[in-house]
Amino acid sequence: MSHHIVEVKDLHYTYPDGTAALGGVGFRITHGESVALIGANGAGKSTLLLHLNGCLIPEAGTVRMGDFPLTKKTLPHVRQTVGMVFQDPDDQLFMPTVYDDVAFGPLNLGLPPDEIEDRVMEALATVGAAHLRNRPPYRLSGGEKRAVAIASVLSMGPSILIMDEPSSNLDPKARRQLIHLLKSFEHTMIIATHDLDMVLDVCGRTMILKGGHIAADGPTEEILQNEPLLHACSLEKPLRLQGCPVCNPVRA
């Protein structure tokens, strides 16, 4: 199953204004792995994600998504392989209705109308949003928007899912539903997030980015228990792994 592999080697990127965002990032993610990408604000998470679907082209180093090295020529294939869920659903849901939006990707793939209908309804059913099909996206709640944004990439049948802060701005129930949804996926997943409790639930492997480098890469349980490491990377232990604040008050 080589087409589910994500391989990044010695990736460098500097923004046009001179900000060095990535300074030699490398990792390999295999089929079906669910990986959390965590790190402080400005550690390079979003920049890294933008490289994984070709929104940014590497300055140095290589990115390999599935069967293809990422170059300008392979971009259409890569984008079909990789489903990218953006942080702000309003950026992703640009079509007039939910249905049109979820159909946008399949239409661009040039699929026949029946197939498009099937794919759209299947994707909407997966995220539990089939009843929203004729609604305009700007009138949905935050949780509904997020669900539809995920459906809009599922409809393209990607083998790799990339998400930027999927649980941000969600109420606890919507967040819980999202976690159940993510756990049900068999895709290779890369999730950039600050929600470390969600990471505990969803991701078996965690990578920490710090100042454009990978500071740690390993099993989630080990990394999220390593307090000195987390502290050095401006992170904290997930709340569930911290002591009870009532029986065991921690000094701030």
Binding site: M84, D88, F104, G105, L107, N108, S152, V153, M156
Partner: peptide, 24 residues
Amino acid sequence: DRAQRIHQAMLCRGFTGELRLPVP
């Protein structure tokens, strides 16, 4: 900024410059 992000989101889903309609 938003326009740029939307354009990226469109490119990620195979946008080639022509807006296609689901139902002809």
